[in-house]
Amino acid sequence: MAIVADHLGLSWTELARELNFSVDEINQIRVENPNSLISQSFMLLKKWVTRDGKNATTDALTSVLTKINRIDIVTLLE
């Protein structure tokens, strides 16, 4: 997760939308982690794993990252 969080940057909100997080949930992550995109990205991934449990797999994440054109991160995960 740390590799993904380190590289997402501003794309974390796009990833959040693709992972079916609501606008309110995205804003809450922003408010709770106001000074760091990496912290926002990491919190998103943590919430995703908590919410989706065993369905929050590397394959699922890779699929969504591909959908938002972040092949650079997919390559890092391989």
Rank of each mutant, 00 (worst) to 15 (best):
Arg17Ile: 06
Met43Trp: 09
Thr58Met: 15
Asn55Arg: 12
Glu25Ile: 03
Asp24Glu: 14
Met43Thr: 14
Glu32Ser: 09
Ser39Tyr: 04
Thr50Glu: 13
Ser11Asn: 14
Ala60Val: 13
Glu78Asp: 13
Leu77Ile: 07
Ile26Glu: 02
Trp12Leu: 02
Asp59Glu: 11
Phe21Ser: 01
Leu44Ile: 07
Asp24Ala: 11
Ile29Met: 05
Val31Lys: 14
Asn27Glu: 09
Ala56Val: 13
Asp59Asn: 08
Glu18Leu: 04
Asn55Trp: 10
Ala56Leu: 06
Val74Ala: 08
Arg30Met: 15
Arg51Met: 04
Pro34Arg: 08
Thr13Asp: 07
Lys67Leu: 04
Ala60Cys: 11
Ser11Met: 00
His7Ser: 07
Thr66Asn: 11
His7Met: 10
Ile38Met: 14
Gly53Asp: 05
Val31Trp: 10
Asn69Pro: 02
Asp6Lys: 15
Ile38Pro: 12
Lys54Gly: 14
Val31His: 15
Val4Trp: 00
Gly9Tyr: 01
Ser39Lys: 13
Ile68Phe: 00
Thr57Ile: 03
Val23Ala: 10
Thr66Tyr: 13
Ile26Gln: 05
Met43Asp: 14
Trp48Thr: 01
Lys47Tyr: 06
Glu25Thr: 07
Leu15Trp: 04
Ala60Gly: 08
Pro34Cys: 04
Thr58Pro: 09
Val23Asp: 07
Leu19Ala: 05
Ile38Asp: 08
Arg30Ile: 15
Thr57Pro: 01
Ser39Pro: 04
Leu37Asp: 08
Asn55Tyr: 12
Leu8Gly: 00
Ile68Arg: 00
Ile71Asp: 15
Glu78Gln: 06
Ser36Gln: 07
Val4Arg: 01
Thr66Ala: 10
Lys46Val: 07
Phe21Met: 05
Ser39Phe: 06
Val4Lys: 02
Asn55Leu: 13
Asn55Val: 11
Leu37Thr: 13
Asp72Ser: 02
Leu45Tyr: 00
Leu19Met: 07
Leu76Lys: 15
Ile3Gly: 05
Asn69Arg: 08
Ile29Ala: 03
Thr50Cys: 12
Glu78Ile: 08
Phe42Gln: 15
Ala16Asp: 02
Asn69Leu: 04
Ala60Met: 14
Arg51Cys: 03
His7Lys: 13
Ser41Ile: 03
Leu19Lys: 01
Arg70Lys: 06
Gly9Pro: 01
Ile73Asp: 04
Leu37Asn: 07
Glu78Asn: 13
Thr50Ser: 13
Thr57Ala: 09
Leu65Lys: 05
Val49His: 09
Glu14Arg: 08
Glu25Asn: 04
Glu78Cys: 08
Arg30Gly: 06
Thr66Met: 12
Val31Gln: 14
Ser22Cys: 14
Leu44Pro: 01
Glu14Tyr: 06
Leu37Ala: 11
Glu18Asp: 04
Asp52Phe: 03
Ile3Glu: 07
Lys54Phe: 10
Ile26Met: 05
Ala5Gly: 07
Thr66Leu: 11
Asn33Lys: 09
Arg17Trp: 11
Ser11Gln: 12
Glu14Leu: 07
Leu76His: 12
Ala5Ser: 10
Leu45His: 06
Leu19Arg: 02
Ile29Thr: 03
Gly53Ser: 07
Ile38Asn: 15
Ile29Asn: 09
Thr50Tyr: 13
Val31Ser: 13
Ser41Asn: 03
Ile73Gly: 00
Ile3Thr: 10
Ser39Asp: 13
Asn69Val: 01
Ile68Glu: 00
Leu44Tyr: 04
Phe42Glu: 14
Thr58Gly: 11
Asn20Trp: 01
Leu45Phe: 04
Glu14Lys: 07
Asp6Cys: 06
Leu37Pro: 11
Ala5Trp: 03
Ile68Trp: 01
Val23Leu: 12
Phe42Arg: 15
Asp72Glu: 05
Arg30Glu: 11
Val74His: 01
Lys47Ala: 11
Gly53Trp: 02
Leu65Val: 03
His7Asp: 02
Thr62Gly: 09
Val23Cys: 08
Leu65His: 00
Glu14Cys: 08
Asp72Tyr: 04
Arg17Phe: 11
Leu65Arg: 01
Met1Ala: 07
Asn69Ala: 07
Val64Ser: 12
Ile73Lys: 00
Asn27Met: 07
Thr66Gln: 15
Ile68Ser: 00
Met1Tyr: 15
Glu32Phe: 00
Phe21Pro: 03
Phe42Ala: 14
Glu78His: 13
Leu65Trp: 01
Thr13Cys: 05
Ile73Leu: 10
Leu15Ile: 06
Asp59Trp: 09
Met1Cys: 09
Leu45Gly: 01
Ser22Pro: 10
Arg17Cys: 11
Ile73His: 03
Asn33Val: 10
Asn55Phe: 10
Ala60Asp: 04
Glu14Thr: 09
Ser63Thr: 14
Val31Pro: 01
Asp59Lys: 14
Met1Trp: 14
Ser63Gln: 13
Thr57Arg: 05
Lys67Asn: 06
Ala16Cys: 00
Asp24Pro: 07
Leu15Glu: 03
Ile38Ala: 13
Val23Arg: 13
Lys67Gly: 05
Arg30Pro: 08
Arg51Tyr: 03
Leu77Ser: 05
Val49Ala: 14
Ser39Thr: 13
Phe42Trp: 14
His7Gly: 03
Trp12Met: 02
Val49Glu: 15
Ile68Ala: 01
Asp24His: 12
Ile71Pro: 12
Pro34His: 08
Met1Asp: 04
Val4Gln: 04
Asn27Ser: 10
Ile29Gly: 01
Asn27Leu: 06
Thr50Asp: 15
Asn27Trp: 07
Val23Gln: 15
Pro34Thr: 07
Asn33Thr: 11
Thr57Gln: 07
Thr75Ala: 12
Val64Tyr: 09
Val4Phe: 02
Thr58Trp: 10
Pro34Asn: 07
Thr75Asn: 15
Val4Met: 00
Leu8Ile: 09
Ser63Phe: 10
Lys47Asn: 13
Asp52Val: 05
Glu18Ala: 09
Lys54Asn: 07
Lys46Trp: 05
Leu76Ser: 09
Pro34Ile: 00
Pro34Leu: 01
Leu19Gln: 03
Asp59His: 12
Leu10Ala: 12
Lys47Pro: 00
Ser36Val: 00
Arg17Gln: 08
Leu15His: 03
Val64Ile: 08
Val49Thr: 11
Ser41Glu: 01
Leu10Asn: 10
Thr62Ser: 15
Ile71Lys: 14
Leu45Asn: 02
Leu76Ile: 15
Val4Pro: 01
Ser36Gly: 08
Asn35Met: 08
Ile38Leu: 09
Ile68Gly: 01
Asp24Gly: 08
Ala56Phe: 07
Asp52Arg: 04
Ala16Met: 00
Leu15Ala: 09
Trp48Val: 01
Ala2Asp: 15
Ile38Ser: 15
Ser39Gly: 12
Ile29Asp: 02
Leu44Gln: 03
Arg17Thr: 13
Gly53Arg: 07
Leu8Tyr: 04
Ala5Pro: 01
Ser63Met: 12
Leu19Glu: 01
Glu25Trp: 01
Gly53Tyr: 00
Ile73Phe: 01
Val64Glu: 13
Lys47Asp: 09
Ala2Phe: 13
Ile71Arg: 13
Trp48Met: 04
Glu78Pro: 11
Asn20Arg: 09
Asp52Pro: 03
Leu37Trp: 06
Leu15Phe: 10
Ser41Ala: 14
Thr50Ala: 15
Glu14Met: 09
Val4Cys: 07
Thr58Glu: 11
Glu32Thr: 10
Phe42Asn: 15
Asp52Tyr: 03
Thr57Lys: 03
Met43Phe: 08
Asp72Val: 04
Ala16Arg: 01
Leu76Gln: 14
Asp6Ile: 03
Leu61Ser: 04
Val49Phe: 10
Val23Met: 11
Met1Lys: 06
Val49Trp: 07
Ile73Pro: 02
Arg70Cys: 02
Ala60Ile: 08
Gln40Thr: 03
Ser63Ile: 08
Ile29Val: 07
Ser39Trp: 06
Leu61Asn: 05
Met43Leu: 10
Asp52Leu: 01
Val64Ala: 11
Ile73Glu: 00
Asp72Cys: 00
Asp24Thr: 10
Ile3Cys: 08
Lys54Cys: 11
Asn69Asp: 09
Leu10Phe: 14
Gly9Met: 08
Ile68Leu: 08
Thr66Phe: 12
Leu37Tyr: 10
Glu14Ala: 11
Met1Asn: 11
Glu78Ser: 11
Glu32Tyr: 08
Ile3Phe: 14
Leu44Trp: 02
Ser41Asp: 03
Thr57Trp: 00
